[in-house]
């Protein structure tokens, strides 16, 4: 059993040519991870809470204007700037999953990690999250409901990873490619999000990488994100 599933390099590929900005991933993430919805006033105050957000960029001017979508979530950096600044080690690196873990019950809310994250994907619960009864019936019991004063972020759906890993380990077999799907990748209608283990040479992500269109967000910072973006293209006719 020891030889199976020791370490993994969980990796996400985001194909910007396929992302339509439809928000299916956003709602899937809210449902899966018990992420509260910020009220109108909170959104106005800049305290919207989404573990995954679709940024929209304009390019050019009317009539040759383009809108480009960029889904941004925790980049699960190998050299994560959020980790060394946490005074209580709530933000730390998982050696076996190779992702960045936020331990809510350790977090004391200094917000240093959010401050240090260049991707602005760490979110702070300024107020106690509120669900009007019986909306809380929908909660995913596999994910802690975070209280006020706690920092939270995308976990690559660690609860799904753990569930599969625990079963695979108990059954003494390796995790199969595709067995783990984070909620966002699962929902994405166009399959713009592809998730897998980069250490597994047979996995889809390993086969897709390196890709001619690939880039990483703020690559020059040396954070070594585990999220690869594939540039969108454009077909021209008549040239």
């Amino acid at each position: 059993m020891a030889e199976n599933n020791t370490t993994h390099k969980w990796t996400m590929i985001v194909d910007l040519d396929k992302c339509t900005g439809c928000q299916a991933c956003v709602v899937a993430c809210h449902a899966e991870n018990n992420v509260p919805i910020a009220s109108e006033d909170q959104v106005i105050a800049g305290r919207g809470l989404h573990w995954i957000r679709i940024e929209r960029y304009w390019e050019g001017e009317y009539p040759d204007v383009k809108a480009k979508f960029l889904p941004v979530f925790c980049q699960q950096c190998n050299e994560a700037p959020c980790e060394p600044v946490c005074p209580v080690y709530a933000s730390h690196h998982s050696e076996q999953e190779n992702i960045n873990i936020q331990t809510y019950n350790r977090c004391v809310g200094t917000r240093y990690c959010g401050n240090n994250c260049p991707y602005r994907v760490r979110l702070f619960n300024y107020y106690p999250p509120k669900w009007d009864e019986p909306l809380e019936q929908q909660f995913n019991p596999d994910v802690t409901v975070r209280g006020p004063g706690v920092m939270e972020k995308c976990t690559f759906c660690i609860q799904r990873i753990r569930r599969v890993r625990e079963v695979a380990n108990a059954e003494d077999r390796p995790i199969e490619d595709g067995e783990i799907q984070p909620a966002c990748a699962q929902a994405c209608p166009t399959t713009a999000l592809v998730f897998g283990d980069k250490y597994d040479e047979e996995s889809l992500v390993s086969k897709m990488l390196p890709h001619e269109r690939q880039f990483k967000l703020l690559e020059s910072l040396g954070t070594e994100p585990a999220v690869y973006y594939l540039k969108g293209g454009e077909t021209h006719v008549g040239e």
Binding site: C22, Q23, A24, V26, V27, A28, A31, E32, P134, L135, E136, Q137, Q138, F139, N140, P141, A183, Q186, A187, C188, P189, T191
Partner: peptide, 30 residues
């Protein structure tokens, strides 16, 4: 309790995928 809605992978229409509105069906139920 119903905790999550996903697309039916066998269904020939949506083939395992589901939009934001479809997933929010739980907030109609609850």
């Amino acid at each position: 309790r119903a905790t999550k809605i996903e697309g039916n992978p066998e269904h020939p229409a949506n083939r395992g995928k589901l939009c934001a509105r479809g997933q929010a069906g739980l907030q109609l139920l609850y």
